[in-house]
Design a protein around this nucleic acid. Structure first.
Lengths: 147, 147
DNA sequence: ATAAGTACGCACACAAAGGTAAGTACCCAT
DNA sequence: ATGGGTACTTACCTTTGTGTGCGTACTTAT
């Protein structure tokens, strides 16, 4: 149980990448780097689930809606448009009535999807540990201020 | 250029996992599964960046604030509390004045962090392709409705 | 003596995310 | 003929995320 802070090891100098550098290779730690937008689309609430769902193959709009439980039509459409704009999802519309549209991953989308799936899988597999940790952390906090 | 939709391959039967099953192994596709909350914390705008930052080692609050460019004190504190509650981040406060608090990853946090880093790294490395795709997709859309 | 740094909590405000409901223009099953 | 399915869009409203500014209780640097 440490009561005094450790000594500082080494100061990290500040970095200021140019815009051109941010295009060649993004930097999520940089405030105005475009990679942050992409990150937000990919890690958005429904974006993650759509990418994982599409890893299994092409889906129609309403198939996705059923698979991704809880998503509204509005947000599913919105999310798909984000991912399509970023070149991760391909949209194929057939000129028939009633409408028929198929969504699938592009090459980029598949690569991204595999990474988000790795994360989602890990969370699913370790959910029990995480929920257990929640209890523990909560208990420890309460112990530090019993009144 | 397909103009008629392909035939359907096979209908997937509906699944309804019980709450108990959702605890042993989460299912992010299930509406009320707790894994979704965890997913949201981990993939939140600042959660991603904090996890990646902490992979490099222990950081103080203000170190994180400087490293994660653009985050406000309010949201950094909030994000850290989410991750701490989920057992991914450890908080160590020293009873000194001025305040000194150190944040680090737990075992769970490191595993999660590695996965989000893999995603962040991929996005950084493929940013150029994604930005290029944005242009292309935009152009294709405009071409389909020139007026 | 004054300013800056530290790690937050709190109140206020705004914008974005997200849900609900309705409308569209047809087809198909009952 | 009525109801449901399809792939959205739009308008309206609520919730959440997020930023800003202020206060704190001191210490260290200027």
């Amino acid at each position: 149980m440490p009561s005094s802070p450790p000594a500082v090891p080494a100061p990290t100098p500040a970095e200021t990448p140019t815009l051109a550098e941010l295009m060649r290779r993004g930097d999520v730690f940089s405030d105005r780097c475009p990679s942050r937008e992409v990150l937000q689309h990919v890690t958005s609430r429904w974006g993650v689930l759509v990418l994982v769902a599409l890893l299994e193959g092409t889906h129609r709009f309403s198939d996705l809606r059923r698979k991704v439980a809880g998503v509204s039509e509005r947000m599913l459409a919105q999310t798909l448009q984000w991912l399509e704009a970023d070149g991760l999802v391909r949209r194929q519309a057939f000129p028939v009535v009633p409408p028929h549209v198929e969504y699938s991953l592009t090459g980029l989308g598949r690569e991204a999807g595999e990474r988000v799936q790795a994360l989602a899988d890990w969370i699913e597999g370790n959910l029990a540990d995480i929920l257990a940790a929640r209890e523990t952390v909560q208990r420890d906090k309460s112990a530090n201020r019993p009144k």
